[in-house]
Design a protein around this nucleic acid. Sequence first.
DNA 1: TGACATAGTGTCATATCAACACTATAATAG
DNA 2: CTATTATAGTGTTGATATGACACTATGTCA
Lengths: 223, 223
Amino acid sequence: MSAIRVAVDVVILAIREGKLQVLLVKRRYAPFQGRWAIPGGFVKEEESLESAAQRELEEETGVRDVYLEQLYSFGDPGRDPRGRIVSVCYFALLSSGDIAPKAGTDAADAGWFAAFQPPPLAFDHARILDYALLRLRYKLEWTTAGFQLLPKKFTLTDIQKVYEAVLNKRLDKRNFRRKLALLDVLEPLHEYRSEGAQRPARLHRFSAKKFELLKDKGILFPF
Amino acid sequence: MSAIRVAVDVVILAIREGKLQVLLVKRRYAPFQGRWAIPGGFVKEEESLESAAQRELEEETGVRDVYLEQLYSFGDPGRDPRGRIVSVCYFALLSSGDIAPKAGTDAADAGWFAAFQPPPLAFDHARILDYALLRLRYKLEWTTAGFQLLPKKFTLTDIQKVYEAVLNKRLDKRNFRRKLALLDVLEPLHEYRSEGAQRPARLHRFSAKKFELLKDKGILFPF
DNA sequence: TGACATAGTGTCATATCAACACTATAATAG
DNA sequence: CTATTATAGTGTTGATATGACACTATGTCA
């Protein structure tokens, strides 16, 4: 009937080496053979869009139970030389603790890149990545999604570095922590982490119970 | 190849009789024959998603150059008994000045309904409408999109009523106007509108030139 | 045991917020 | 022409949040 095909693409983001990075795959075949691309694939007959995105994500990273959010659907005729393909795009936020396990399907054709300085990308993927980064910045300013980029236990400096990496600016430590305290979503643990010849930092964890309340109260978090 | 078909649905919203209303069409055929539904249709081979949405919008309202924004894509298997259909949904904000011209393709099977108390809807359209209303509320709080619901010339009370209709709460006139002034996007005209046995209200128009600057400055507008 | 490097903490001047009530004025009725 | 009417239009205040700013605390390692 219709010759339009439906695909999902997943912009997979994580903090690595203190920077926001994106997972890309190298295309094996034409078009754009050898170019880096956002991982994705066609939606199967019996799976939901979100399941398809989760499947792609798991194929690339081996990770499940990850923050995943629908981003936008791109469907201009001509965006893919192989034919009319509508791509429903998602973005995923990986905890830095989740990255090691697999590091891409296979080292040769998957890799992490600085999200703000990606290599040339196939198709309209540069636009998709830009949009994901824009959305992530909004998310960080208005929600607590930033904690998804951290492992379960983290220091206050860890979360500040996430904000600095994504918003791409330095933040004042005291003001940042005052706002964090106001948010009231962190539970200080009785554990500390030593990072060198200096005072160890206290570990905290994100308390999801309070998350819903925050949304109800309409608290914004624009640093 | 793929049996997945791609459609667009457009949630068309406007202020009528002081209330937020949504344009619905009555289904002529099964499934859900006789039920009200959000207007939409299949995407044609050669048109972009946005063009398809614009086409549907124009077919229903006869109006062009309307605020149109992609909302979300719904694609669960089973959401449409006729087969696997992925619907890319948009929402449109009509100026109340644009409504009279056509009032639906044909009076018998198109009509305006209170957006917050719609009739039973076909398919998963109740969910789509809910999502559109949620998004519109955010839009109003964080952007100047609310002006799209007004004609070119309007009074300050007009815009306040739009906010009250969408946010579904009463607002303080003086505080509202203070924030409007802060936004600095309104141009007072040397025209007034009489509405009865009382002082006439000054007309204003939205000045789009200043719009971009606002976004750059990152000014929010949460009433 | 001293040097190191990051952890952790408070104040003040400014801006923003919500709550609140009265005067101005054109149209209309008599 | 005058009074009535109903909406238009306008400021202040006390409370809260904000950004700018600098020093002390402390575990580790040499």
